[in-house]
Computed example of a mutant assay.
Amino acid sequence: MKSAVLVFPGSNCDRDMAVALETVTGKKPEMVWHGDSALPDVDIIALPGGFSYGDYLRSGAMAARSHIISEVIKAADKGVKILGVCNGFQVLTEIGLLPGALMRNQNIEFICKDVPLIVAQNRSVFTSAYEENETITIPVAHHDGNFFADEATLDSLENEDRIAFRYGENINGSTRDIAGILNASGNVLGMMPHPERAIDPIHGGTDGLKLFEGLLG
């Protein structure tokens, strides 16, 4: 499986994501600069965490206008797997590949800690290696992770089985405890917690590893 990791000014988890993908696939991912105009032929594209453009205007707003984004949208439409983590999730909502928005945390504070997540469904490629309703522990590190969408959108996410992860404890005010969602086709996942930081026991846990292993299926 071939992969690519996008890199924006201010990205700080791109190398973590690259290590996770290489660990599971056995191949180094292509590191794609935001100003590039073409993507390599890959099976998965990852939008990493960080603070692209210093969160200027709002998180993900500037990155959403990068040259490479039009190619990401085309790849998603073709069925390429797209994983957006933290800032990457914010970018995916900004470009319309996922609905809703990520707002300032309810307590107006930066949150950095391990949190329990509930695997809401295991019928997507991203969650297939987990058990449904399994509780896992994944780190978070965000200031704008409060997921919001209107009631009609939330009902659609529920009814279409597009909620991938929920917080076991609602740390940021996210509506309906949502921590990660899928697009209608199931090939795009956005999530605030960082699975790439939970793949090695030396880092304190390996509960993120199954997400990447599921991509090999």
Rank of each mutant, 00 (worst) to 15 (best):
K78S: 12
I44W: 10
S52R: 03
G49R: 01
T135C: 09
R58D: 08
V85T: 01
I108W: 09
G79T: 03
V19R: 11
D207V: 06
P201R: 08
A149Y: 01
A152D: 15
E160T: 01
N146I: 00
A198I: 07
D155C: 14
Y56Q: 11
L21K: 03
N12H: 10
A129T: 04
V72C: 09
H67Q: 13
N159G: 01
L154A: 00
Q90S: 08
H142E: 00
P139S: 05
Y53C: 15
K2V: 14
N172R: 10
H67W: 15
N170A: 05
S156C: 11
A4W: 14
I68F: 05
L57Y: 15
M31S: 14
E109S: 09
G204P: 00
G204Y: 02
Y130R: 00
A38W: 14
A152T: 15
P9A: 00
E151F: 06
N159P: 02
V119Y: 01
V19T: 13
G214W: 14
D207Q: 08
D55Y: 04
G60P: 05
A18M: 09
N12A: 08
S37F: 13
F110L: 04
K28P: 03
T153D: 12
N183A: 07
K210W: 13
K28I: 05
D144P: 01
I202Y: 09
K28M: 12
P116G: 06
I44D: 11
L92H: 03
L97N: 05
V85F: 00
G217K: 11
V24Q: 11
V72T: 07
E22T: 14
L211S: 01
V42K: 12
K81T: 10
A179E: 04
F8D: 00
E132V: 05
T206P: 14
R15P: 03
P139N: 02
M31W: 14
L209C: 13
S59I: 05
M191Y: 01
A141P: 03
G49A: 08
M103E: 15
A179I: 04
G217R: 15
Y167D: 03
K27D: 10
G88N: 02
L47R: 04
D41M: 08
N187W: 02
G50M: 09
K2N: 15
D55F: 07
H143V: 12
M192H: 07
F126W: 06
K2Q: 13
E151Y: 07
D55G: 05
A75F: 12
P9H: 00
P40I: 14
I111P: 12
L83A: 03
K2H: 15
K81D: 10
K78V: 11
S66M: 04
P48V: 10
K81S: 10
F165A: 13
E71K: 08
D144M: 04
N159T: 00
I111E: 12
F51A: 07
A179C: 12
I181Q: 03
S11L: 05
F89H: 04
L21G: 03
G145W: 00
N133S: 12
R104F: 08
D16C: 05
A101P: 07
N87M: 06
N170Q: 09
D14A: 01
N159V: 01
G205F: 05
